[in-house]
Design a protein around this nucleic acid. Sequence first.
RNA 1: GACCCCAUUGUGUAGUGGUUAGCACCCCACCCUUUCAAGGUGGUAGCACGGGUUCGAAUCCCGUUGGGGUCGCCA
Length: 473
Amino acid sequence: MVRGRGSVGGHVHERLVAEERRTPKRRSSDMNGLRVRFAPSPTGFLHVGGARTALFNWLYARHARGTFVLRIEDTDTARNTAEAVKVIFDGLQWLGLDWDEGPLPDGGVRGDRGPYFQSERRSIYDRALRRLLDQDQAYESDGAIRFRMPRKKIVVEDLICGEVCFDCTLEQDFVIQRKDGSPVFHLVNVVDDLEMGISHVIRGEDHLSNTPKHLAIAAALGGTAPQYAHIPLILNRTGSKMSKRDVGASLGEYQEGGYLPQAVRNYLCLLGWSLRENREVFPIEEAAEKFELNQIHRSNARFDADKLLWMNGTYLRSLSVEEILPHARTWLQRSGLPIAKREPDYLKEVVLLLKEKVKTGKELVEWAHPFFQEEVSFQANAVKRFFDPAGLQALRELLADLSEASDFTSSALEARFQRLAQAHATPVRTYVHPARVATTGREVGPSLYPSLAILGKDLVLHRLRRAIETFAS
RNA sequence: GACCCCAUUGUGUAGUGGUUAGCACCCCACCCUUUCAAGGUGGUAGCACGGGUUCGAAUCCCGUUGGGGUCGCCA
């Protein structure tokens, strides 16, 4: 399980110390020269696997007080668009993963090791290509340029996987520049890591098999390759690598589905890493503080949507209403409910009530309808079940009783309901259920008394009357 | 197929030679209760298999099986 970790770890330490001595300090945030990067390809969406890779890089950078670089790998020009890059910015920002260097959403740039779009680094790749060609480490073939792969055994000293030996004696030379002149992933990826001074490459394990190639290119260019750390893959429900087509594979689904970034990011931490303290819900700061590469698992992890849902509910309940409010506003506004017509305090009260009972923003929006819509829309089954003659009679009694109420607070309402039930020698649910249906249209919802208190006397009485009129005939 | 990685309940994990194998999600039961949740209590379920090494193995070694990944002029 821990094969090779000890020796590799020691090696890293020496390397870092050596590098620190010879490399002048560049900026305060990378005093130790530790530099990691997230290098997504703008495809139009951010894969949860990519998000998790970004997260682990970010955690490691923050843990070690290193530098987190964002680099956009847009060499495949046919597929790349500005909107696709925006998706990456949005996803990272939503998750709270800030980068120290890289392109900025406003079109600017931070860092002095750019440009950070590969599409703008062509001259750098051309120079590398020239050098390889001149040294006869690459050659032209069918209009493309191939890298002369050394025919030997190559050992990858991986920080997570240990020493992995690849026999490349029969390895084919591979293309590093296409016939159309554009450079290929293997080349640009390695060149950029070298040029940008990346010290640790934390990426998906699907790249482990590519690493001998990358090591060979780095060596051919006379550079010192970064340390590699291949993290386990995220698997879908059926156990294969989560792909674009899988439900729940895009981070956007969680942004749109009313998930909290704190919850998603916390859940993602758990895929291949753990705090080892029998605790699974923890703030990101604590994760950063305790994050270590050598604690990352080697086995792939299946994505468990149920557990994420549970965690989201946990966050919804534990965060303060002030923390939830901005997200709730986004969810509600997106749903088209006229929340702006109400006082801010009203919204706050509704969110405070609902956040205890729902697991996602989507659910919160559904439950919020009766609080923001003028008219209640009744669910057929709820009507059928609770608006029978007895239910309607209960509503009449309730209407008469609540009309007298001067105190419309939750506790006062509860007392009234209890008294009414007692007077008629019946359980309080006799009144509660019809009242819930009459005021919200549904048979399940948040606690009734606070709901009525928030709706207010006028609206509650109006809805009771309305239900009686509508369904009595 | 070749090469590489992996293997603790259904899922995510704790466990690094001696534990009644712990925790969480899921599922079930009960309690609480105005619905639904939440919460509380309890329960079902696990070291893939076979060989070693050892007084002793979930833990170390080998093999088997199973799963995953990579083998592009995609990244």
